[in-house]
Nucleic acid binder design. Structure first.
Length: 355
DNA sequence: TGGCGTCTTTACTGGCCAAA
DNA sequence: TTTGGCCAGTAAAGACGCCA
């Protein structure tokens, strides 16, 4: 999609590279809606570095001794089984998109950082032979790491070698911070890539689409902010589905989705209503229930809530084992049974042309 | 006037923590 | 144990000033 700004990013996290990666992974094949969730997880699901198991909830609540640790373990085992992978090897078969981007970036960033620092030091202290500290040489981290690398005096790394290891450790730790950005925009690109490869794809679809380019939405007034929608689908006639794609939510983002709906509503020029759908991989039952039952102007905000993998919700919240469920998990189970919350497979079948 | 660089704003996420 | 809300880090987009 053309952008209005000249400084379009061509970086590893930018839209062109994300789309390239999605196309590289999905290739030319047709995607069966029933298996689409597997591609989404292979591309985007990741392993919590502190527990070594698949991430389905906030890290602090998923540590050993916390309530979400056993749930995360069961999720990890179930996903591994479904993908036909040993649980120990799952890490090598998910998180593909992030691994592609970060593997090359972190080392390059670490090297660039040290080169810049040495350049500045040289410009300030040319001729001064005193050695100055370099970025990443954390004394406490060094105390931990250095003994592990010192097998014997003859094998011991020199100073530059140790600093190189420390920088790479830091680069790795900070790389996790980049995931949020890639996940947010990448989720939209992955879903659009899946939709494109359906056996009977819808007439229109797109990610990060300017609202006024979608049939039935009027242009923004001069000076107003250009409004975009995460993802949209159209049947080429009167049906338009506006999609909010959020991998997970917090309470503050729930308000944002209602605000977005109001914006779309104000800009809708047709008498025909548009549909509003939330696609998510959220596992928190309260957040799912809240958004699936949220109302706006005396009607439900979302026409549908779509979860990437409802079967995984059942595993995590133990819908099948007969135990008494808590209030929110019980309500979540009802909403799934009522098809107020549906799976990605059902949604993809619904939007398929002729579907 | 248009190109360019820099700064600011917006939107995305998970982590985290206090309160319920 | 859950819930609500804020924060940090990131990229993209927009705003703005400078200069040829």
């Amino acid at each position: 999609m053309a952008r209005s700004n000249s400084n379009t990013s061509q970086g590893p996290f930018g839209q062109p590279n994300r789309v390239r990666l999605v196309n590289q992974f999905l290739g030319l094949r047709t995607i069966d809606p029933a298996n689409a969730w597997k591609d989404v997880y292979r591309l985007l699901l990741w392993i919590d570095t502190r527990t070594g198991i698949a991430h389905c909830y906030e890290s602090d609540k998923s540590q050993p001794g916390k309530p979400w640790y056993p749930r995360s373990l069961e999720f990890h085992e179930w996903v591994s089984d479904q993908l036909g992978i040993a649980p120990m090897d799952l890490k090598d078969h998910v998180d593909w998109m992030f691994r592609q981007v970060v593997g090359a970036v972190t080392e390059a960033e670490a090297d660039e950082m040290i080169a810049n620092a040495l350049g500045v030091q040289e410009s300030l202290f040319a001729g001064n032979r005193k050695k100055m500290p370099v970025p990443g040489d954390d004394p406490r981290l060094r105390e931990i790491v250095e003994p592990l690398m010192s097998l014997s005096p003859s094998e011991r790394l020199d100073e530059d070698g140790i600093n190189s290891v420390l920088r790479k450790v830091y680069a790795h730790m900070s790389s996790e911070n980049k995931r949020a950005n890639l996940l947010g925009r990448g989720f939209e690109d992955v879903l659009d890539g899946v939709i494109r490869r359906l056996p009977a794809p819808p007439e229109h679809h797109g990610a990060q689409t300017v609202l006024e380019t979608i049939p039935g939405f009027r242009p923004t007034r001069d000076g107003d902010k250009v409004e975009k929608v995460d993802l949209w689908v159209g049947d080429g006639e009167r049906r338009r589905i506006m999609i909010s794609a959020k991998w997970s939510v917090r309470a503050d983002r729930e308000k944002q989705m209602a605000t977005d709906f109001q914006t779309y509503n104000q800009m809708n020029d047709w008498r025909d209503p548009f549909e509003y759908v939330w696609i998510t991989n959220e596992f928190d039952p309260a957040r799912l229930v809240t958004n699936a039952t949220n109302t706006q102007n005396n009607s439900l905000l979302f026409d549908k809530v779509v979860h990437i993998c409802p079967a995984a919700l059942g595993v995590v919240h133990r819908f099948g084992d007969g135990a008494r469920l808590g209030r929110n998990p019980a309500r979540l189970q009802e909403l799934l049974a009522e098809q107020r919350i549906i799976g990605l497979d059902a949604f993809l079948r619904d939007i398929s042309s002729g579907g």
